[in-house]
């Protein structure tokens, strides 16, 4: 990398910049289409089964279907205490025709970007060296010092790119090694075709509705990360940071 002319600001290698761009753009489209998908049924459940006739874990006040889906009278399948069916009396607000197809098209780009980043950063040692908080760097004292520095809005200044402070490493590691892969794992766990070939997905994720709820929780985590990440970029020199992630050195 031709990074010497800015001295302490080496910028990011090309593969980081490219995969970062692919992941950023795809995550934004996935967020948008994902929230559009959620409009059709803004209710979250746990386990395999969840629908308008079963109890919810969380009802999200999201879109026109919130508390607004009328059903006809119940008909029992077996006895009076057993499962029932009820007819839905109107078509619900539903953007899934385009939202699902856009979500799954974008998921291909996301999968490619994340796989390339994890593979290349693992091969180059970037992941082990700069992202994963090593045992040596990890101490309660260092963590407290970092938290104090952030709470007083005095995060380490002066460079873009690694080395990262401990809180930063933890945030990046949680996102690239846990939250983003969890989106793929829980997403695949909801596929009726893929789970027939890999039943382990359903077993590990705890069922379709658990996977859907975890998909949502992980989305919230990623959304929160994006807000904090953007705030830190603003606080630590937006021009230098943008230059480092967009054009390198």
């Amino acid at each position: 990398m031709s990074s010497t002319k800015l001295g302490a600001a080496p910028g990011h290698p090309a593969y980081v910049r490219i995969t970062h761009a692919v992941i950023v753009l795809s995550v934004l489209v996935l967020l948008y289409s994902g929230l559009a998908i959620l409009v059709a049924h803004p209710r979250l459940y746990w386990g395999q089964v969840g629908n308008s006739l079963t109890p919810t874990l969380i009802e999200l006040p999201w879109g026109r279907n919130y508390h607004n889906v009328p059903f006809g009278p119940p008909t029992a399948f077996f006895g009076p205490d057993g499962p029932v069916t009820r007819s839905r009396l109107k078509e619900v607000a539903n953007l899934n025709s385009w939202a699902r197809s856009l979500h799954f098209l974008t998921a291909w780009a996301f999968l490619a970007g994340l796989t390339a980043y994890l593979g290349l950063s693992l091969a180059s040692g970037h992941l082990q060296r700069d992202i994963l908080p090593g045992r040596k760097a990890f101490s309660v004292g260092a963590l407290m010092a970092d938290i104090r520095a952030h709470l007083t809005f005095r995060p380490p200044q002066g460079h873009a790119g690694p080395p990262y402070n401990l809180l930063q490493k933890i945030a990046y590691a949680v996102i690239v090694c846990f939250a983003l892969p969890l989106m793929i794992f829980t997403g695949l766990s909801m596929s009726p075709a893929i789970t027939t070939a890999v039943p382990l997905l359903t077993t590990l994720s705890g069922g379709y509705q658990t996977a859907r709820t975890l998909h949502f929780v992980s989305m919230v985590l990623i959304f929160g990360f994006i807000l904090v990440h953007l705030a830190m970029v603003l606080l630590t020199g937006v021009r230098r940071q943008l230059r480092a992630i967009l054009i390198g050195g």
């Binding site: 049924h41 395999q48 089964v49 629908n51 308008s52 899934n96």
Partner: peptide, 11 residues
């Protein structure tokens, strides 16, 4: 399990 595109399921 019936898996509706809307996001709900039933067995």
């Amino acid at each position: 399990r019936h898996t509706c595109e809307e996001g709900w399921t039933a067995i």
